[in-house]
Amino acid sequence: MRNELVTAFRAAAVTLVLTGIAYPLLVTGIAQVAFPAQANGSLINDTTEPSVTMGSALIGQSFSDPAYVNPRPSAAGAGYDAAASSGSNLGPTSKALRDRVAADVARLVAANPNAPGEVPAELVTASGSGLDPHLSPASVAWQIPRIAAARGVAADRVRAVAAEFEQGRALGVLGEPRVNVLLLNLALDRRFGQPHLGASITPK
């Protein structure tokens, strides 16, 4: 028994060094040399001021200005808190969920008077991570009349930019068609200029 206990300690030490220290350090080394951009979070820098980092291409961020595509509701911290990922975990018979969605629907309908059809479910449901960087093309299209009006450009011009950012299924099969909201909004700014932020932003 005592022998076994000694072996247990030694085996723990050996495997800990091998898998808990050597393995992650080796892969960190490879990753930092071979794929530094991805390994450090796929960061996006401001095109005009390259020293300013504006976010990560993989992580959603809050947009509430009518001139931007607005993302899904987020349960991560106070909303898109990338240091506190979370879903809402509200179940299908939750009154809190029903009340939250009812409020979001009222807000969205008021802000999007010319939107086609009912509110897409995506725009009133929180994602699993609270950091979902994407929307489906349909959920982007639903917001385009509002964005075009806010930017004072024709809706078709906005649609053309959005279409460029539509990402299909991987290998034609995997996943769902989607649009990266942050990348599209940056492109809208490049194409049509930055909107005047501030007054129009209503804190959530």
Partner: peptide, 9 residues
């Protein structure tokens, strides 16, 4: 869609 990510559907 509550609790689901767009890319996975």
């Amino acid at each position: 869609l509550e609790g689901k990510e767009v890319r996975f559907g």
